[in-house]
Amino acid sequence: MRPLLLHGHERALTKIKYNREGDLLFSCSKDHRPNVWYSHNGERLGTYNGHVGAVWSCDVDELSTRLLTGAADNTLKIWSVHGGKCLHTIQTSSAVRSVGWAMGSERALMVTDQTMGQNSLLHFLETPEDDAPSTLRKVVVSGSKATIAVWGDLNRYVLVGHDDGSISKYDPETGTQIVTTRPHTGTIQDLQLSPDKTMFITASKDTSSQLLDAETLRPLKRFQTNRPVNAAAISPIRNHIVLGGGQEAMSVTTTAVKSGQFETRFFHSVFEEEIGRVKGHFGPVNTVAFHPSGKSYASGGEDGYVRVHHLDESYFSFRYEFEEE
């Protein structure tokens, strides 16, 4: 397996995302320009220039026509995927931490940070395709500040990850909290739904990752590592989980290279057992994403590189002895 190294960013990666077909890969970083790449050969298609702060999150709609980005310059921007033109900008009062399209792309969601006396807010937006977006509802996040939010199945609920390790479920129609649990003791760094949206995986700074049921928030599986987990993704075709993480960037210079553990790790999602490791990044892995076909995955690190791995035949032929074909 020879990974493709995409070096379009000058600073740490914050989020990478494949589009629905998986032919495009979007990456955003603490430098101000999100990039889009062809995932099969790593060719850069373009950049979205316009933000003036670290871009924390991005999301592409199902038709791959519009891109949402949220940045530390207190703006959310909607871009035309082809051409890189900024279609709309929404000004907020604090940094935008997380953004997401609802199914059907007529609604969107963003999370703003709790800074400068501002509360952490969930913004629900109406985003008609041919008109300017408007804010439907702003919800003050109760308890610990929100770090990430994703839309659930059929837009019936929104899953929110919090700074203290709790996960809660909000009703997008009323803005009320339905249920909340606290499976982790550290910040929720990542939250990704399985392709069928029945369960989701969390990545937490408390060095573990958990698989939870999306309806009941019941913990299903737990994957323990020995370093903070920054990102987690579920394989669309195998019972595998991929975790990215490593020593926190601020403590990297004071620890030995070997104990940094910047590998991406594969776990079996049923047996909770580690089954493979991929080295490569020179810093913690901040974000991982699986290709929708499950045949490749990408990771983005603090070192500013995105590494796209097209998995080998040996990966697909691996099975436990008792596993069926």
Partner: peptide
Amino acid sequence: RPGPNQSTTVVGEKMDLKMGPI
């Protein structure tokens, strides 16, 4: 130009992913 630009896209070193319980 069409095709990957050398300055942004590099093919990395060969990586081994040995699958098996660790």
